[in-house]
Amino acid sequence: MGNLRSVEKALEKVGAEVIVTRDQDQVRRADALVLPGVGAFGDAMHNLAKRGLVDVIREETLGGKPFLGICLGLDLIFEESDEHGLNQGLGLLPGRVELLSTELKIPHIGWNDVSRRKQSRLLADVPDGSFFYFVHSYAVVPARDSDILCTTDYGCSFVSAVEHENIAAFQFHPEKSSSLGLSILKNFVQ
């Protein structure tokens, strides 16, 4: 809920012109797409489908438009999720979403360190092992190892960021992760 406003303000801070929309044409006209979100996977997909946005997002993103997913917006780009029963996702990347398999408390909330698995323009200003702010219970399991950008330990190792061509997505919240988080958004906007 507040997440949307925080993402909007953070993107504006790094120089983006932001349109918060549920309109198909605006999604098509935009230079880049950002899908934030906290909440449940099934509800989010249901709402996207209700607005006719599932196909639009798929077409635009698979057509090469820069795409940034945050938190639930990371989960949604995969094919399916176990959250509250099996739900289909946007299927932009192969793989699925599962409950964190950890002995530690769920949800995983707080600042945790992030290890990089490959190079990325978005992380150009981020030293390996930097801390970012997390609030989540589920994690993505990409089918292709090459899509994994970062991993994080929380009683288990999980994928905390993915990147494939024009698609990047983070389990943590760049908009709540101080200057390093803003640097990721800035690199995305540029």
């Binding site: 925080s6 702010y133 908009e175 709540k176 992760s177 101080s178 803003l182």
Partner: peptide
Amino acid sequence: CAEELFIP
């Protein structure tokens, strides 16, 4: 705060 603050 939401406009200027980028930590929780």
